[in-house]
């Protein structure tokens, strides 16, 4: 699904370094990226999304070339079908929750039902008429995730989406993420510092340090689909979502 090799100069606390990462992701795979700050994790996501220009390499996604230095190809971020969840959520303050999602879904067939479905999936229906300024951090996070999905992306990039949240909210959102990943089978890259979170959600983990890959491999205790589903049911209030979510890829 996603195959890339990216190079970019980094300015780290230890002086100038080069971010140099090559990775291939299978369709539906969830890869976690961890590492100390300044390792180049966010830069890597930004390069994949087309928000920054790499110094060299290539990005291929689903048979499409997004970037290729040798062939001088470059797809602007608008034309890369991906969902990006920013660390600060970046919700549009002038729009309500529903409008944020509708703006993201605009121009696609079935935008209305998709927005309603995402609101229900992320338990946002009650909050739909509110503006982001009137929401808690966890609620904003759910809106950000729902909005990223509203474009029907093929790739989901999550930049430390749960870092700023308290532990109970974190656990609920990890469950929501697992549910979303199960339902839409999205190829996902998740930046995370939390070993428990990585173990719970990821198929593989990439450890970055100073721009280089230190280790690629399974998380400490690799989850099987059964345990992921089990944990979703265990963590959600009343196990409600696990039962009501339509199952299977779309």
């Amino acid at each position: 699904m996603l195959d890339f090799h990216l190079r970019k100069a980094l300015h780290t606390a230890a002086g100038p370094r080069t971010l140099d990462v090559a990775l291939a992701l299978a369709p539906g795979e969830l890869v976690a990226i961890s590492g100390p700050s300044g390792a180049g994790k966010t830069t890597l996501l930004r390069l994949l999304a087309g928000l920054d220009r790499p110094d060299g390499g290539f990005v291929r996604a689903g048979g499409e070339v997004w970037y290729d230095q040798a062939a001088r190809q470059w797809l602007p971020p608008q034309r890369r079908p991906l969902g990006f969840v920013f660390q600060d959520y970046a919700l549009f303050p002038n729009m309500t929750v529903r409008e944020n999602l509708a703006f993201a879904a605009a121009g696609q067939p079935g935008a209305g039902p998709l927005v309603a479905e995402l609101l229900a999936l992320m338990e946002l229906t009650e909050l739909a008429p509110r503006r982001p300024g009137a929401l808690s951090g966890g609620q904003q996070q759910r809106v950000a995730l729902a909005r990223a999905l509203a474009r029907r992306p093929r790739l989901l990039l999550l930049d430390e989406p749960l870092a700023a949240l308290d532990q109970p909210t974190r656990l609920r959102l990890q469950a929501a993420l697992a549910a979303v990943h199960q339902q839409y089978q999205l190829t996902t890259i998740l930046i995370s510092h939390d070993p428990a979170e990585i173990t719970r959600l990821a198929h593989r983990v990439v450890e970055l340090d100073l721009g280089e890959v230190r280790r690629v491999g399974p998380p400490a205790a690799p989850p099987t689909p059964a345990t992921v589903a089990g944990r979703v049911l265990a963590v959600l209030p009343g196990g409600a979502c696990g039962c009501s979510c339509p199952v299977g890829p779309r």
Binding site: L51, P76, R147
Partner: peptide, 9 residues
Amino acid sequence: EAAYTLGKS
């Protein structure tokens, strides 16, 4: 950037 990643011009 969020608007760009949502495909907006």
